[in-house]
Design a protein around this nucleic acid. Structure first.
Lengths: 351, 351
DNA sequence: AGGTAGTGTGGGAGCGCTCCCACAAGTGAT
DNA sequence: ATCACTTGTGGGAGCGCTCCCACACTACCT
């Protein structure tokens, strides 16, 4: 009833101004209520909230973005073609963690694939237009120009696996070093003495850390590290086959293999069987990732599990902090933000 | 060189105004060049383009969205939890089609999951805020309130499987009727006489159409339709098992089964084998979807393939047309836009 | 009584665009 | 020479917010 003086625009959505008129207050006050500022009296707040309710007011995001110079959106950039995104449970788990952590926020998540050159070009434009407040970077290669672009554009970003020990971006990682150690220590405790390691692609920092963990675990147990038992792989199944064949040729007495990924372990397993070795009786096998493959191999594969979902959550936490810090150009903490999460060894029959 | 009168803001991005000053033209002219209007002389256009290049100008999306009342973004709404999204190749293929069709557009695609009530609530807010120009709706249930919400908000939308023959929204579908016919005709041509049908969830329009196709194929081949050979399922494996058991009980002489999905066929296959029937010798089996399951079954399953990727492309085409039509409130074509794409029977050893 | 904070509030300015009206200049028919 | 178009161009107004300054008002010290 009554007093509906100003309003009357046909189908248009109500604006801040209209809510203000309805509640009998000024524009600024409505804005304060909407944005949860504490400097509003209870009575006024109630009046405004009532007006918002009655009018079905929803803020216009574009206007807010323009005036406040922020978008309330962040991007999850996947530098892979869609295909891999769907194929690997890594992304699905990551997305679950990210989504859940974001769900009690106003932030909106954008999923951006940048597998092809074409897509990368578009992404660069996209970022240059500052269409997001921050970026989550997963599975980037060491020579990827994307992180530098982000730094240059001064866009807050968090990377899922640091590119080196000196990663300038905020990063979240699982404990590759510790994960590798736990795998090797497990094999040692099972009485294995000649433990080989098929590495991941060594341009990936995490793969290097796994080698470090392998070495240190052996050393600290009083074993000498035999460099001939370390054979570079590339995370793929074919790489696993190749490396395993080479290792067997070099030293037929190997009684355990720690592979830097489950698919690599699968490749190695095939070669071992072809060479007449039984798993785990002759050779124990341990993989990394605890993927579906690990569960479905015969025998099921012991593997190092990474807490992907938690990593996703941690990335969001870091990113939101970065965004908040940057906003008032606050005490820009110069200490680098790096989070490392523990892994877990999942024991199965292969070891 | 020279004449850089106006500019000089510290780190800020260049604006339209600055580009105009640099090129020695007015704001309107730059806007026209950026938006590809033909009403600009070649010389002016070149000057503006040079200025854009030199300044590294990128339009501010928020300002554009506010002024023009559009967002240049569309949403792909998935009313399922993330899990199913990743599990089913349907979505992956759909996304591929959508992405490819969108790639030569300025439009940006947002992926929105609305599996939980919480997420649906957020989605409603999101749509009310008109944060997208249009919506793609996949795998909606018949009683979903989402389509009506979109109609009410006057947001252009395209649905991937119409909810009925009278679907008011623009829609894209595969030819469920024709697909079912081709499956049954194939079985008839293989000399099968007693062909049963395990339906999909009959609340889904597509499932009804498949039943229609089954019936008509039999009739037109001069067979009588025995209603006792039609058993309702629900697209699931368990449903397939249940239905198959019931069918065998009713008529042990069945020599072929057409199931409304591959997983249903898988369930039916298990029951058949347990009943001592061999596939395809005793009973031929045909599924629907041509999913990975079909390829990996033993024996591999004959199945009806839907052109999912093309469907995604068609949906984008329709949606972009809708958006364009609505913009100048043009000749709002009252004819409904419905696209139906052909299916293809993929023959394998199960039939 | 005067001063000095603090608290709540209104509203101007401005974010960077698009839309559109006005107008100059050119073209060709009358 | 006049009128009527067409083509290209400049720039005002306005989109719906946020930010911030100004101001009224209260409370509590001197």
């Amino acid at each position: 009833m009554a007093g509906h003086g100003v309003r009357g625009r046909s189908g248009g959505r109500p604006t801040l101004e209209e809510v203000a008129a309805r509640a009998g207050v000024g524009r600024g006050t409505v804005s304060r209520v909407i944005n949860g500022s504490p400097r509003v009296s209870d009575a006024t707040r109630a009046a405004v909230e009532a007006a918002v309710e009655e009018l079905g007011y929803v803020p216009n995001t574009a206007a807010r973005a323009l005036a406040a110079n922020r978008t309330d959106a962040i991007a999850l950039v996947v530098p892979e073609p869609e295909t891999r995104f769907f194929a690997e449970p890594y992304f699905s788990d990551m997305l679950k963690g990210v989504g859940s952590e974001l769900s009690d926020t106003e932030m909106q998540l954008l999923l951006i694939f940048a597998g092809s050159d074409r897509e990368r070009e578009r992404l660069a434009q996209y970022l240059a237009a500052h269409r997001v407040d921050g970026v989550l970077l997963v599975s980037v290669h060491a020579d990827d120009p994307l992180p530098d672009l982000l730094t240059q554009l001064e866009i807050p970003a968090v990377i899922s696996g640091p590119r080196s020990a000196a990663e300038p971006l905020a990063s979240v990682d699982s404990d590759n070093y510790g994960g590798a150690r736990s795998a090797v220590e497990h094999l040692l405790s099972r009485g294995r003495g000649r433990i080989a390691h098929i590495t991941g692609h060594l341009a990936v920092y995490g793969a290097q850390r796994r080698v470090d963990g392998y070495r240190d675990a052996l050393r600290e147990a009083g074993h000498e590290v035999d460099e001939r038992l370390i054979e570079p792989g590339d995370f793929t199944e074919e790489g696993g086959r190749r490396a395993m064949a080479e290792l067997l040729r070099r030293d037929p007495g190997i009684d355990a293999v720690f592979a830097a990924s489950d698919v690599t372990a699968a490749g190695a397993g095939q070669v071992l069987r072809e060479a007449g070795r039984s798993i785990p009786d002759d050779v124990a096998l341990v993989g990394y990732d605890d993927s579906a493959i690990a569960r479905h191999m015969e025998p099921p594969l012991t593997s190092v599990r990474q807490p992907i979902e938690e990593m996703g959550r941690a990335m969001i936490d870091l990113l939101l902090t970065e965004i908040a810090d940057r906003r008032p150009a606050a005490s820009r903490g110069l200490e680098r933000h790096q989070v490392v999460l523990a892994t877990e060894l999942v024991e199965r029959r292969s070891s």
